[in-house]
């Protein structure tokens, strides 16, 4: 049975689509595009798809992935053809970026994810910048020996050292060229970033075992740095401090 991995982006108005609705969106798109997808057996067969790392509502991404098994009886469809047919039936805000064939022994996408990279920038809270300028914050983090996070889980509190979960952390500035090359950043037009605005680039542990959400990381770090209590919100109660854009998922081979 052949498998393909599909990379897509999610931005604009579609960033408000929940994960289950996104799943249904793709199930229908695959049918509209008439892709020979393999089906499960049983009374109501479903498409054999597996999605990696649900993105929280409100985040944008150019690093979304799912794997699709193809029906071998009807094989012969090329990756280019899959990309072409799917692209034809997308809506604004979801773009098929790449389709590639997987080798037999490749792990499925959810099991393969080990890290995720994000661009993070301030939505609105100009005083934050003075309290915590990106460069200073990065330096501060690098000099810490550990960063303790007491994570509330269903099974109780779990202590995590965030220092061990970050493989890259840097600060930069949007320049005109970088920004234009990334239409996936918020194109609802609401907080378009200007040239010179700061952003963070961060790579965090990800996957089913040990997943660190960037908003959680920033909350812990900023609390530690300013000794004030911040609740960082990218979703949920609407104050929206940080904009998070997922750039890429990194897979174990």
């Amino acid at each position: 049975m052949s498998r393909v991995r599909i990379r897509f982006s999610k931005h604009g108005a579609m960033k408000y689509l929940g994960h289950l609705d996104l799943l249904r969106f793709f199930q229908k798109a695959i049918k509209r595009a008439d892709i020979p997808v393999a089906m499960s057996h049983g009374f109501s067969p479903h498409q054999l798809l597996s999605f990696a790392m649900p993105l929280s509502v409100g985040l944008t991404s150019e690093g979304e992935y799912f794997d699709m098994e193809l029906d071998t009886k009807e094989s012969g469809i090329s990756c280019d053809e899959i990309k072409r047919r799917l692209s034809e039936t997308m809506v604004d805000g979801i773009e098929i970026m790449a389709v590639s064939l997987l080798s037999k022994d490749e792990k499925n996408v959810m099991a393969a994810v080990s890290k995720a990279s994000y661009v993070v920038y301030y939505k609105r809270h100009p005083n934050w910048e003075s309290k915590a300028s990106p460069k200073e914050l990065v330096t501060y983090f690098k000099e810490l020996s550990s960063l303790r996070w007491e994570k509330e889980t269903k099974k109780g509190t779990k202590v995590i050292d965030l220092k061990k979960e970050v493989s890259f952390f840097g600060a930069g500035c949007f320049d005109d060229c970088f920004f234009k090359a990334h239409p996936c950043f918020d194109n609802t037009g609401e907080f378009l970033t200007k040239e010179g605005d700061p952003f963070f680039l961060i790579t965090l542990s990800a996957g089913s075992n040990n997943n660190i959400r960037p908003e959680a990381f920033f909350e812990v770090l900023l609390n530690d740095y300013t000794k004030e209590h911040y609740t960082i919100v990218t979703e949920g109660n609407g104050t929206g401090d940080l904009a998070v854009h997922r750039v890429e998922l990194i897979f174990d081979r």
Partner: peptide, 12 residues
């Protein structure tokens, strides 16, 4: 605006 869409149920 974004803050409203992120605070209401089923923004989509």
């Amino acid at each position: 605006p974004d803050d409203i869409l992120l605070s209401v149920d089923k923004a989509a």
